[in-house]
Computed example of a mutant assay.
Amino acid sequence: MESILLSLRRAGQDLLAPRMLTLAFWPMVLSLLAWGILAWLFGSAWKAEIAGFLAATPLDDLARWLGAEWLTAYAAVFVLSLLWLPAMYVTALLITSLALMPIIVGFVARNHYPDLEYRRGGSLLGSVFNGLVALVLYLAAWLVLLPLWLFAPFGILVSVLLNAWLNQKLFMYDALAEHASAGELKDERHAGGWRLFALSSLLGLLHFVPVVNFVAPVYMALAFTHHGLAALERTRRGRPA
């Protein structure tokens, strides 16, 4: 638990550094801008498609029986929101992973792990492939489990768990790619255990906190970088992870 708290504390301190503050808001702002434009251009068509799908389900029969034909239209907006919000979240994470992680890892390494040797077991192509696989699996799981949002506590729990998985899947590769060898990269990503899952889950909760969620992607990247590089350093020194 101490290593988790240390990673979170150091990430918070680094986030306040001028260089990191200049990056902190960009992923969410760019994602919001991109999806806002798409929603403005295609939102009505998306809503109509979802409403048409819902019209073929028992929900439409229930709405007619209750005399509340508007229910299907409101349900379409609700479903569209449940799809739009994770899409925006994932886009911000991908921007952070692909565009900002080299800057973040370099910053953390220089200031906290200057003696850690670079063995470059990862690559840009590996990062892109890792991100695409994570994206496809995350969105597929989200769509399959979407009905659980009818039971709010289960929907929130599923969202936290999926976010936790996506966070560690994306950022652990990028955090270690420059410093770990290919073998170390594989071992460290699969050796996180409960510490890595706990860190991922805590960071996944930031997605639900207003205002904080705007800087969450960069804060997550910092926390995972600290966690990954500290674990790699302990491993090379023969200390317990």
Rank of each mutant, 00 (worst) to 15 (best):
W65M: 14
Y173D: 12
L150A: 11
F78K: 05
L16M: 15
A231W: 06
A141N: 08
R9A: 14
H227P: 04
G131W: 05
A75E: 04
N111R: 15
S3N: 14
T57W: 02
S3R: 14
G126L: 01
G67E: 09
M1V: 11
Y118E: 00
L8Q: 13
A241K: 11
A182I: 01
L62E: 12
E184L: 01
T57E: 03
A141Y: 04
L71C: 07
F224Q: 05
E117P: 02
F208R: 10
L185D: 03
G106S: 10
L8T: 12
V160P: 06
L196C: 02
W40V: 13
I95F: 12
L222M: 10
A182W: 02
V158K: 01
G122A: 00
S81W: 03
L32N: 09
D60Q: 15
Y74M: 12
G228V: 04
G121R: 02
L176P: 05
L66P: 09
H190V: 01
A24Y: 05
L82R: 02
P210M: 06
F154T: 01
F129M: 13
A24W: 03
L93R: 08
A152Y: 01
A223K: 11
P58N: 00
V136E: 06
H226S: 09
G183T: 01
L83Q: 04
F151L: 06
G106Q: 10
R239G: 08
L143T: 06
L166R: 06
I37E: 05
M172H: 08
N130E: 11
V160T: 07
D60E: 14
G121I: 01
A75G: 05
R120M: 00
P102Q: 07
A198D: 07
E117T: 08
I50N: 08
L62G: 10
G122T: 00
A175G: 13
P102I: 09
L145K: 00
A164H: 03
A134M: 12
E233H: 11
L203Q: 11
R120C: 04
L135G: 05
L23P: 04
A45V: 08
W65V: 12
G193S: 10
D115H: 07
M220S: 15
M1H: 09
N130A: 11
A175N: 09
R119W: 02
Y89Q: 14
R189S: 02
K169Q: 14
F197N: 13
V144M: 02
M88A: 14
G67V: 10
W46S: 10
G126N: 04
R237S: 12
G36H: 07
L135K: 03
L82P: 02
D60M: 13
R119G: 01
L162H: 07
D14M: 12
I4S: 12
A24G: 07
G131C: 15
F224C: 05
V79T: 06
V218H: 05
L16R: 15
I156F: 00
L135T: 15
V158Q: 01
L185M: 05
V136N: 05
G121P: 04
H207R: 12
D174I: 06
W46Q: 07
K186G: 15
A134L: 08
T96H: 10
R120P: 03
P147M: 00
P217R: 08
K169G: 04
H207G: 06
R19K: 14
R110Y: 03
D115Q: 11
L202I: 14
L82D: 01
V108H: 08
N111Q: 14
P147E: 03
L62K: 13
V211F: 09
L222G: 08
